[in-house]
Amino acid sequence: MTPVAPLITRFLREHMPIERGYSPHTCGTYAHAFRLLFIFASKRLGIRPSQLCIEQIDAELILAFLAYIEEQRGNSAATRNGRLAAIKAFFHYVEFSVPSALAQARQIHAIPGKRHDQALIRHLTKDEVCALIDAPDITTRLGIRDRAMLHLCFACGLRVSELVGLLLENLSLQRTPSIRVLGKGRRERCLPLWKATTADLRAWLAVRGKVPVPELFVNAQGDAMTRAGFEYVLDKHACTAAKTCASLNGRSVSPHQLRHGCAITMLQATRDIRKVALWLGHADTRTTEIYLRVDPLEKLDAMEAVLSLGLRRGRFKAPDALIASLFEPE
Score class of each variant (00 low, 15 high):
L66D: 06
F65C: 03
L36D: 07
E95Q: 14
L132D: 02
D117W: 08
R180C: 13
G250D: 03
I62F: 02
P99T: 04
A67K: 06
H92W: 04
E70P: 00
F217G: 05
L142E: 08
A5H: 11
A238D: 04
A302L: 15
C245D: 04
V4Q: 04
L171P: 01
K195T: 12
K317E: 05
L63F: 12
A263P: 01
I111D: 08
D284W: 07
V164A: 01
R83C: 15
T139C: 08
G250Y: 03
T140E: 06
H256F: 02
A77M: 11
L84F: 14
V160E: 00
A228C: 11
P136K: 08
L309Y: 09
D127G: 03
A67P: 01
L63M: 15
I273A: 05
A110T: 11
H92Y: 07
T139M: 10
V98G: 00
P255W: 15
R274C: 11
A324R: 02
L292T: 12
R83A: 15
M266H: 09
A324F: 01
P99I: 03
R159H: 08
V213D: 11
I47N: 12
G209Q: 12
I69E: 08
C53I: 10
R83S: 15
L234A: 14
P329L: 00
S161T: 09
L37E: 14
T79I: 10
P192G: 12
G157I: 03
L158W: 10
I57G: 07
P3W: 03
H25G: 04
L182Y: 03
L166H: 09
A241R: 00
L150C: 05
S97W: 06
R259I: 00
R259Y: 00
A318H: 00
S161N: 11
A77I: 10
S23M: 07
N81I: 12
N81E: 11
V211Y: 01
F316C: 05
G310Y: 02
Q118I: 06
R259P: 00
A321K: 14
G229P: 05
D137C: 04
K299A: 14
L120Q: 07
I290E: 05
G281N: 05
E95C: 13
W279Y: 01
S172E: 09
G209M: 13
S50A: 13
L205T: 08
W204H: 09
F91H: 04
P24M: 08
L163T: 12
V211P: 01
A5L: 13
K299M: 14
E95M: 14
A41L: 02
R180A: 14
S308I: 11
T288I: 02
N249D: 09
R271E: 10
I179N: 05
C245F: 03
L7V: 04
C130Q: 15
E169T: 13
H32S: 13
L258F: 04
R20G: 10
P255Y: 15
I179P: 05
G74A: 03
P214G: 13
V233R: 09
G185E: 00
